[in-house]
């Protein structure tokens, strides 16, 4: 069947799921906001507002004046990446394992189309949808906090969220497909349970990645997240000073697409041979 059929089918299914997944998205938005505000709140309770502002400016090397509102807005914007990572990596990995090893829906898909087509299309669509849906709360919060300027900030961030969502989805395919079809993992929540917090902690998200302990950074560098965090942090506090980071992200993105295409194709062969 053609890629258009697969595209249409997955869009239909995801929109149907979306309706039922609303509590999960609300929970994700709530938790991500809580994380962002907790970090600021905890640091502020010990250092006071002026101490926090000073430390913040020093860490991000900001020369101009920074207000508490700026810091909160930045933390909320970064929390979008947290929500996005949790959603993309969590859902894509869980859906792949759940479909193949728990509810046995793989037969329905394998008798209708090519599996590599299905997986590649699914990752693209999910990344795209998640880039919007899982970060929508950031728009709401920024508009509440900053008014129309908040909406402008969100629209600036949105392309970065969407591209990150797609890259993370392909990254998850690369990690999950071998675990599903070779290791035959059945606990569909296990990958997301460990990988998501490790990636988020390792990428810094709220702090520059250089301040993250090395053992965590090493793991997160397998994903596109550290690059994205740096891009987002630079976008937020100053004009992009190191365009090389864009180049690195593009290279990483291309590698994930190439790798996930190869692994999806291998998965197809493996499944059809009944291994």
């Amino acid at each position: 069947m053609s890629i258009v059929s697969v595209f249409r089918a997955i869009i239909y299914r995801e929109l149907r799921f979306l309706k039922r997944m609303m509590p999960e998205y609300m929970s994700l938005a709530f938790q991500s906001t809580l994380f962002a505000l907790s970090i600021i709140g905890i640091a502020m309770s010990v250092s006071g507002v002026s101490g926090l502002v000073a430390k913040f400016s020093q860490i991000f090397n900001i020369s101009g004046k920074v207000s508490l509102t700026d810091i909160i807005a930045a933390a909320l914007a970064f929390s979008g990446l947290l929500s996005l990572t949790a959603d993309c990596v969590g859902s894509v990995s869980q859906v792949i394992i759940y479909e193949a090893n728990v509810i046995d829906i793989l037969h329905l898909i394998a008798q209708s189309t090519y599996l590599y087509l299905y997986y590649m299309t699914y990752a693209l669509i999910y990344g795209l949808l998640s880039g919007i849906v899982s970060t929508l709360y950031v728009l709401v919060l920024l508009v509440v906090g900053l008014g129309a300027y908040g909406a402008y900030v969100y629209l600036m961030l949105l392309p970065a969220y969407i591209v990150t969502g797609i890259a993370l989805s392909y990254y998850t395919l690369v990690v999950t497909l071998p675990l599903t079809y070779i290791v035959k993992m059945r606990r569909y929540w296990a990958i997301s349970q460990v990988l998501v917090p490790v990636l988020i902690a390792g990428s810094g998200i709220f702090i520059p990645v250089s301040l993250v302990p090395l053992f965590l950074r090493v793991i997160s560098y397998t994903s596109p997240l550290p690059e994205v965090c740096t891009i987002l942090q630079e976008m937020f506090f100053k004009a992009i000073q190191s365009p090389i980071i864009f180049l690195m992200f593009t290279a990483v993105f291309v590698i994930y697409i190439a790798l996930s295409t190869y692994i999806s194709y291998k998965t197809e062969k493996l499944v059809r041979r009944g291994l």
């Binding site: 069947m1 053609s2 059929s5 697969v6 249409r8 089918a9 239909y12 299914r13 149907r16 799921f17 039922r20 509810i103 046995d104 829906i105 037969h107 329905l108 898909i109 209708s112 189309t113």
Partner: peptide, 21 residues
């Protein structure tokens, strides 16, 4: 089994029909 548990029978069939072209 072999269908999405949270979708209805009707939604599962529409998904399958779309997948089949």
């Amino acid at each position: 089994k072999g269908f999405y548990f949270t979708l209805s029978g009707y939604e599962n069939l529409v998904f399958y029909g779309l997948l089949k072209g």
